[in-house]
Simulated scan of single mutants.
Amino acid sequence: MRPAIRAGASGYLLKGSALSDLVAAIAAVARGGAFFSPAIAKLVLVDSRRRETHPADALTNRECEILRLVAQGQSSNQIARDLGLSMKTVEGHRGRIMAKLDVHHLAGLVKYAVRAGLVSPDP
């Protein structure tokens, strides 16, 4: 279901849906709306809420930038130099990132950044 929605589907019915649901779905989508089986609608709602309250949503643009650079293997010293920041400022950002994401080590930050699509894993 999720790949279909990401690909642009405006509706989704379960295999055992009633004929009346199929007719309603076709009509809704034809009008430019959307239609999802109630069980699917609940999953979409839960997914949406989870994304809205995801810890990464609390990261600032600068924190995302620093997280990406850390995950690419740059040291705090390199990041400070490249961004024109003090080492103390970079370390402060890094500490806040770890607290917001509830991550306690560098490997966890890298793993998070890869999963979030901030960096791609090396081939």
Rank of each mutant, 00 (worst) to 15 (best):
H104R: 13
H105N: 15
K100P: 05
S86H: 08
P55G: 03
S17C: 14
G32L: 01
V29F: 05
S86K: 10
R49F: 05
N77M: 11
I40S: 03
K42V: 02
A30L: 09
A9P: 12
D82R: 07
L85H: 03
C64P: 00
L43Y: 09
R50I: 11
A41Q: 05
Y12Q: 07
A4S: 09
L69T: 00
D102H: 12
A18K: 14
K100V: 04
L43I: 08
K100F: 13
V90M: 02
M1A: 09
G84W: 01
L101G: 13
A27D: 14
R2V: 14
V44L: 09
A39L: 05
T60K: 08
G73H: 00
S75R: 04
L106S: 12
L106T: 15
V46N: 02
L69P: 00
H105S: 15
A116M: 15
A116W: 10
G16Q: 14
I66P: 03
A34T: 15
S17P: 15
I5G: 04
H104G: 12
K111I: 00
I26N: 12
A39G: 07
L69F: 05
A116V: 10
A58R: 08
V103D: 10
A25E: 04
M1P: 07
I5P: 00
A18W: 09
S120C: 09
I5W: 04
K88I: 07
Q72R: 06
K100S: 09
C64D: 06
A7V: 02
K88T: 15
T89H: 03
Y12T: 08
A30W: 13
E63L: 03
D82C: 02
V119S: 04
G117F: 06
P123N: 12
Q72Y: 04
T89M: 05
L22N: 14
